[in-house]
């Protein structure tokens, strides 16, 4: 079997803050194959964005990668010199950010912001860079790309700006795209269009994709694999169908129960009791145990990573077997 595009093993990204060591990511492992889409799911503060930034090598001090391995196309990224990492960023690994209103520089033309991403990695002529920028805009469905290149970000709507960001990510035909909640700030209709386009582009170009989100319904329609994170740890992983149809971790169950559904109209939504604990004051053992209905004495020990079924990973002493409503 060939090596996956990206394989993350036991990644730990810690922030050395004044009040203590904040373990934003603490032992996360997953792999993404060529042309596959991985959904990285969790609540705010579960460490999913930091995981993305760790892969990009964009964790700023006081954060650092404290351990683990990130292998990309067979190459170890942890400890890679700055310049080699920079050369990979934007060319082999691209990233799309959450808020398209904030990520494009307001005072530079779209053309400048697109062509500079090409010039950072390749020596091409001005005309060639411009042609590629224009083609990329056309590819993501922006009308009259030639004129739009001359425009500034504030002349685009939110959805259009996110398309520009996607076009920039596609410019250098990367092997991996990390999308950090790219549709959260958008209308549902726009979200649908963008999901469709991204999925299509990944299938066509064979780009691997990590889609970071808190929205299970997005993952259900888009991803092949799913990795659920809680308080910096992977709690459950597997194919989308397996995990969503037969969740085994009680946190995943809670997440699925929190999604409103037509079949349960009129009934109160299921909530996960409590809030996510501060990463500085995590309970010992399973970090979900204080909110878990099934927790008992065993859960004060750290649950080991098990593989209850082929292709599935789990960290729980009391796997659920019930099928959710």
């Amino acid at each position: 079997m060939t090596e996956p595009t990206l394989s993350v093993t036991d990644l730990r990204t810690w922030f050395d803050t004044r009040v203590g060591m904040l373990k934003a990511v603490d032992g996360v492992s997953f792999a993404v194959d060529k042309g596959r889409i991985l959904g990285l799911v969790g609540e705010s503060g579960s460490g999913k964005s930091v995981t993305g930034f760790s892969i990009m090598g964009l964790v700023d001090p006081p954060g650092r990668i404290a351990g683990g391995s990130i292998r990309f196309n067979g190459r170890e990224l942890v400890g890679l010199p700055d310049e080699e990492m920079r050369a990979l960023r934007g060319s082999r690994i691209a990233m799309i950010f959450q808020d398209p209103m904030m990520t494009l520089n307001p005072v530079l033309r779209v053309e400048t912001q697109m062509t500079e991403a090409i010039f950072a990695h390749e020596k091409v002529t001005e005309a060639e860079a411009k042609r590629r920028a224009r083609d990329a805009l056309g590819q993501v469905g922006i009308p009259s790309p030639e004129e739009r290149l001359k425009a500034y970000p504030h002349q685009f709507s939110g959805g259009m700006r996110q398309r520009v960001a996607i076009a920039i990510a596609l410019l250098n035909k990367p092997d991996l795209i990390i999308a950090d909640e790219p549709t959260t700030a958008l209308d549902v209709t726009i979200q649908g269009q963008i999901l469709y386009e991204v999925q299509k582009l990944c299938r066509q170009t064979g780009t691997a994709l990590i889609w970071i989100t808190h929205d299970l319904s997005v993952v259900a329609s888009l991803a092949d694999e799913i990795c659920v994170m809680y308080a910096g740890r992977m709690v459950e992983q597997g194919s989308v169908d397996d995990v969503l149809d037969r969740p085994m971790h009680h946190y995943t169950l809670g997440l699925i129960g929190s999604v409103p559904s037509r079949h349960r109209k009129g009934q109160p939504l299921v909530q996960i009791p409590g809030v996510m604990p501060s990463l500085l004051k995590l309970p010992g053992g399973c970090s979900f145990r204080l909110r878990c209905t099934r927790a008992d004495a065993a859960c004060t020990e750290e649950p080991p990573e098990t593989s209850p079924a082929p292709g599935r990973k789990l960290r729980c002493f009391h796997p659920a077997t019930a099928v959710p409503a």
Binding site: S91, M102, L108, H121
Partner: peptide
């Protein structure tokens, strides 16, 4: 600290360009 700086770096731009083009103009 702005997102656009992190995004510019995510495009693979060098620190020099981020500072003297992106930040400076702002």
């Amino acid at each position: 600290l702005m997102d656009y700086v992190k995004y510019a770096r995510a495009k693979g731009l060098g620190m020099r360009r981020v500072m003297f083009v992106h930040v400076f103009k702002n």
